[in-house]
Amino acid sequence: MADETNTKKFLYINRKAPYGTVYALESLEVVLIGAAFEQDVSVAFVDDGVFQLMSGQDTAGIGMKNFSKTYRALGDYEVRKLYVERESLAERGLVSDDLMAITYEDENEDYAEKPSIHFVDRSEMTKLISEHDVILSF
C-alpha cells in the first residue's frame, strides 16, 4: 500500500441498475482505472445500484456485454470493500443470496478467499459517507 499520509479514502456510490444507462459500467471502469493510484477504495451499492451485483445476469438477449463478471476481478485490483445497503435490497424484494459471491485472496493469509461484500444498514452507510475523503457518485 502507498504511504498512509498520501492515501485518501475514496468512496464510489452506485445507485443505478446496469444496462439501462451507462452509469454502472462507467463507474466500474473508473474504479478499475483509479485502482492504479493505490488509494483506499470502497464501493457502495445503494438504491437500484444493488442490481449491479445480481447473480445470473444474462445479456445475450439485449446485445450488450455482461460486465457483471468484472466485479469479481475487483479483488485482484485491491478493491476489497464493497458495501451493500440492506434497506435498498429489502425495498426491491431482494435478499443477500440474490447477489453474486465476490471474494478476494488475502496474500497475508496464504491467499485465503475472503468475502468482499459487506451488508450494512442505512445508518452504517450514512456513517461510511462521512468517513471518506472523496465521494464519487454514479
Binding site: 445507485r15 452509469y23 459517507i129 462521512s130 471518506h132 475523503d133 472523496v134 465521494i135 457518485s137
Partner: peptide, 8 residues
C-alpha cells in the same frame, strides 16, 4: 465542508 456527495 470536508466533502461533497452528489445524489444524481
Amino acid at each position: 465542508k470536508a466533502r461533497v456527495c452528489a445524489w444524481l
